[in-house]
Amino acid sequence: SHLMAAEPEKLFAMPDPLVQDSYLKTMTTLCDLADRELVVIIGWAKHIPGFPSLSLADQMSILQSVWLEVLILGVAFRSLPYEDEIVFAEDYIMDEDMSTMAGLTELNGAINQLARKYRNLQLDKEEFVMLKAIALTNSDSVHIEDLEAVQHLKDVLHEALLEYESTKHSDEPRRAGKLLMTLPLLRQTANRALHHFYNLKVEGKVPMHKLFLEMLEA
């Protein structure tokens, strides 16, 4: 219930209606949305029980390594009601044709694969918020100093997931495991996204806000 209450309000992409649709416009819209999502994710992390007690350095290392996983898990969850469409925001839904035009076939394909897994599992919101918090604490950053504290946080969230599943889905004894086994695909997809947007940064054609740039560089 704590995690449910910590769920942030949804953001809107608000693509500029005065600019004609183009590859550049799509990327600009996505990068602007990602920058605002980052602010929200950082604020959300502070509400994860135990996270603010970590050292500031460890909080930074963790967020620098998992922010895209958290962001993409959110996109996959939003996309659940829309078959084969990626809901970056309620006002920015990409179908396969749009993905092709935006050069996002591979990335959106991966997000779609993830969303399909969650759709098949009929992932509920409680599971989504717990999985997102677990993804946060499951950072394998080599820069974490107090590994024990992070492990404790992960254990507490893992326990919460197991407890939830044993009461809400007692007919599916392997459900928690199935949910956790989606995390490798989430990390793989986040890495794919990172490469895509890092290459965009290197090309230098798409305007990017400072926080987004900083996190891409990290």
Partner: peptide, 15 residues
């Protein structure tokens, strides 16, 4: 160097 990061500032803010 880390202290100059926006992430650092956002984590330090109380809200």
């Amino acid at each position: 160097k880390e202290k100059h990061k926006i992430l650092h500032r956002l984590l330090q803010n109380s809200s």
